[in-house]
Nucleic acid binder design. Structure first.
Lengths: 351, 351
DNA sequence: ATCACCTGTGGGAGCGCTCCCACAGTACCT
DNA sequence: AGGTACTGTGGGAGCGCTCCCACAGGTGAT
């Protein structure tokens, strides 16, 4: 084995120092050029850039992280098992948005699943080691301790979908309430009156807001809300099917269903089919998310479009801003933005 | 802002030095305990562990990476656009296997997509900076320059599916040839004789091997190979449907189809349906992968099971061994293992 | 002419670890 | 008694960067 001192000498990767020597300048100047500081003359900058190119210099990330106390990496944390991640288009769309925005920067994205207890413990350790500069947290349940852990460790974080109306972290969300309203109003306008609702997991704030929107839309149109027409799902296809069956048993006269997600709508469709009911003739069906599933369903599914990719982009923007903010002046305790993006009803053959 | 020198002093994260002071030992000893060296007395170890617990000490990854010249991270590189990653169960199964095995270690997994040129350039930069200790490369095409780049940078790498019979990198693969043979032999045993084959992308070596298996199975059973019965797909559902339509036009008398992947089989099924052909009465259908799609298809799809999760695990094992190997003695130029895992035909209603 | 204040630059100190050398102490041979 | 060989330990040097202070040289106001 090479001796310690000789590690990285000749043959190894070039260092800042070597670039500096080659360009005939000091270390500080090379560092300034590498980091895009404006305080360098054009001639010097050109000389340094030439030396960098000749030597094929690439900064050592570990050294930089150690000296500058940052990692240039952020994590996308999914507090779900991997299976759900792949089953739900929501996550992949989010990842797409974040990835697109991130490729504009030098930052590195880490995808971390925290579905099991074991994975959670691993993540906590990971965060405690400050291996990332910030965290994007998607799909958080009301009682999740993760946001508080992040706050305690003072790690910048942005959450998709606040945990409650009193969320303290920066968050980006779509207008769940308005989206649900528009879905129900659409069904009402089609002459449906016995409109059922399959909810998402009610420990997800957004799912609750959709129920609120469902209720208010009916009420404002002068209908009473029949609690028998509301059944809790869990965002899975099986859950959607199960809820649909229960609803059909309880209320055989229902003429429309608003499902809290496209995946659950797919489950509901399956249950309706098995019962011999036609969509939309017998029962109109509306989903939520406007994912690929909605377009490919038979019949194509009317759905509330959430701009998930945009949400991902926006989350990243806010996170990067928060990370940058922290660096110069500790201006803590300021108001944290809660952004809400508009939804849009996409009408297709299912309603 | 805090002055440079005071960064991390009181209130910051505890350092090795502080742990050492608290435990009344030297830095070296704490380092040995942290890294599980056996050369520490039980009493000292206990004292250090107590100090670590009291202070909530977590090693600084950057400092460790800088001093030890390793990152404790590996990358799973997917040379495809993200959309394909999510569409193909192959990738998620692979990720599952790798993730399961990796959670036994302290290593960190990075998921990197390299579908576009832009992403490729980013990846090259990333690898040049040696930000990972090793790379798992899945689904590599014959002309991909990535493996050579890895070899040149001397980064340990394991590839899933060799690029050719002369692959130089360590690889793990399933027995594509044998799997294809078993599929065709099964169809022959069911009395089918006009067996078509929808291939995968032929720049993927494994897809070629499946064609070889298809050919040899027919030949060995005394049938001539009708080239009209072979059509190239591209591993996508649309590609499978398109290939099926072409095959039906060319050979309306075909009575069975062996598709190079379940996803393509799903496309073929769609095309067969549209033509009014029944599965398996008119045309028997066999897929490859035995993914979730196969089980949920209507009718359930006979498929060649590849132990993808096991392959992922095995790839990781080999990679970790290669990384560990490198450290002590540079024993380069040795034979690189090429592992081949067995496949198994899972017979269901489609054949 | 003096002072203040820019711009551009060099280089010391330090980030928190790992690696290795040195050495004290003990054990077991000759 | 001297030698040899271990085990356990402390701490110096160094990894490659960033940050900041110092300072040279210019520019413009007083």
């Amino acid at each position: 084995m090479a001796t310690h001192g000789a590690r990285g000498r000749s043959g190894g990767r070039p260092t800042l120092e070597e670039v500096a020597a080659r360009a005939g300048v000091g270390r500080g100047t090379v560092s300034r050029v590498i980091n895009g500081s404006p305080r360098v003359s054009d001639a010097t900058r050109a000389a340094v850039e030439a030396a960098v190119a000749e030597l094929g210099y690439v900064p050592n990330t570990a050294a930089r992280a150690l000296a500058a106390n940052r990692t240039d990496a952020i994590a996308l944390v999914v507090p779900e098992p991997e299976t759900r991640f792949f089953a739900e288009p929501y996550f992949s769309d989010m990842l797409k948005g974040v990835g697109a925005e991130l490729s504009e920067t030098e930052m590195q994205l880490l995808l971390i699943f925290a579905g099991s207890d074991r994975e959670r413990r691993r993540l906590a350790q990971y965060l405690a080691a400050h291996r990332v500069d910030g965290v994007l947290l998607v799909s958080v349940h009301a009682d999740d301790p993760l946001p508080d852990l992040l706050a305690q460790l003072e790690i910048p974080a942005v959450i998709s979908g606040p945990r409650s109306a009193a969320e303290t972290l920066t968050s980006v969300d779509s207008d769940n309430y308005g989206g649900a309203r528009s879905a129900v109003e659409h069904l009402l306008s089609r002459g449906r009156t016995r409109i059922a609702h399959i909810t998402g997991r009610l420990d997800v704030y957004g799912a609750q807001r959709r129920v609120d929107g469902y209720r208010d839309a009916l009420r404002d149109a002068g209908h009473e809300v029949d609690e028998q027409l509301i059944e809790a799902g869990d965002f899975t296809e099986e859950g959607g099917a199960r809820a649909m069956k229960l609803l059909l048993e309880r209320c055989p006269d229902l003429d429309a269903v608003f499902a809290g997600s496209d995946v659950m709508a797919a489950g509901a469709r399956q249950a309706l089919r098995e019962t011999g009911l036609r969509i939309p003739e017998d029962v109109a069906l509306v989903g939520y998310d406007d994912s690929a599933i909605a377009r490919h369903m038979d019949p194509p599914l009317t759905s509330v479009r959430q701009p998930i990719e945009d949400m991902g982009r926006r989350m990243l923007d806010l996170l990067l801003a928060e990370i940058a903010d922290r660096r110069p002046a500790a201006s803590r305790g300021l108001e944290r933005p809660q952004e809400v993006l508009a939804t849009e009803l996409v009408v297709r053959a299912s309603s």
